[in-house]
């Protein structure tokens, strides 16, 4: 019983085709895996390069770098306290405004808004996130800051002028630009992040829970306050942390309106600086290794702060995703 020639040959051609497929598959698999590892390498390289770049500054100033306020390019004495302070204060002001407003908008979108309007309003709010930060900067400098200088700031100075403590917090003159203006611009910029995430977690609250509460005779506000918010708490905090991460690292908008003064003032109407604004303003003009290295060290501090904030945010959001999924 002899096989015809064709079928006798077939297994070996098939074998070769299979081999080729196997090699192709293995190659593609390794290629994609390398790309995935590449993402990790990028992060590692960012951290390593920042550390190596900031070594000269950290070695010559030590802990002083973190706690000194001085920033003197002429005598080459640098301390990061003023930019760190500015970064934290502007972000704090931003969150103070953006968190309640963002949460209220998501309440409106999930509970009050007629269905046909939800998508357009949601998209409009997200478009706010799409506007490049330099646009916020130019708008803040030419339109928003002069407006504040003429209206809100004199009002605040007059209002709190005679109250102890608050009078120094709102001590004038109204420059227009300054820490408060930067905080307000940041609030507008992080608003869409907080809104879209809290809207998503509000929508993930099971309808049955809400209906049960309504069935007991709760008002809409009571349902939001006692059912939706407690249920969505973890996700909301995750969204807030994500917004905070954005606010801390935001560069261009802040650079335009903060005034770039390396000092810590009690008044939030006074000009200040943030880590990112200092780097953006001074890096290309920095002469000398120590100056450059100090600016890179500022970048390292910023990266460490935002990394921690973002890691916490992602962890919290991951937890809520697991619960939903």
């Amino acid at each position: 019983m002899s096989l015809p020639l064709e079928t006798a040959l077939a297994p070996s051609t098939r074998g070769r085709a299979l081999d080729r497929m196997r090699v192709g598959d293995l190659g593609f698999r390794l290629l994609t895996r390398a790309a995935a590892v590449g993402v990790l390498i990028i992060l590692g390289a960012v951290i390593l390069s920042l550390i190596s770049g900031s070594l000269p500054a950290l070695q010559s100033f030590g802990v002083d770098f973190l706690i000194a306020e001085r920033w003197n390019p002429v005598t080459e004495k640098f301390g990061a306290l003023a930019p760190i302070y500015g970064t934290l204060v502007t972000s704090f002001i931003a969150m103070l405004i953006a968190v309640p407003v963002g949460l209220l908008i998501s309440v409106f979108l999930t509970e009050l808004c007629p269905l046909w309007l939800r998508r357009p309003i949601g998209i409009a709010i997200e478009l706010l996130a799409g506007i490049p930060s330099i646009i916020y900067g130019i708008w803040g400098l030419f339109i928003f800051a002069p407006f504040l200088q003429q209206t809100l700031q004199p009002f605040l100075i007059a209002l709190f002028g005679n109250i102890p403590f608050l009078s120094s917090l709102f001590a004038g003159p109204p420059y227009g630009i300054g820490v408060l203006t930067a905080g307000l611009i940041l609030a507008i910029m992080v608003l869409p992040f907080i809104t879209s995430i809290s809207r998503d977690v509000f929508e993930a609250v099971p309808q049955v829970l809400k209906e049960a509460a309504y069935g007991l005779g709760c008002t809409t506000w009571e349902v939001v306050r006692r059912v939706v918010l407690p249920y969505a708490r973890v996700g909301v905090i995750g969204g807030i942390m994500l917004g905070l991460g954005r606010a801390l690292g935001e560069t261009m908008a802040v650079t335009f309106v903060i005034g770039n003064a390396h000092r810590i003032s009690a008044s939030i109407l006074a000009p200040g600086t943030t880590i990112s604004a200092t780097i953006a303003n001074e890096f290309t003009e920095a002469v000398g290794d120590l100056y450059t290295s100090s600016l890179i060290a500022l970048g390292l501090i910023l990266f460490v702060i935002t990394f921690i904030v973002l890691a916490v945010a992602r962890y919290l959001l991951l937890r809520i995703e697991r619960r939903v999924g």
């Binding site: 993402v39 992060l43 960012v46 390069s49 690292g249 910023l302």
Partner: peptide, 24 residues
């Protein structure tokens, strides 16, 4: 791990990316 790191890179301050490329 990659998903976690990628999400962090997604919102990392872009000025730090600039510093990184400057260095390397």
């Amino acid at each position: 791990v990659v998903r976690f790191i990628n999400d962090i890179l997604l919102s990392a301050p872009s000025i730090v990316i600039g510093l990184f490329i400057y260095e390397v």
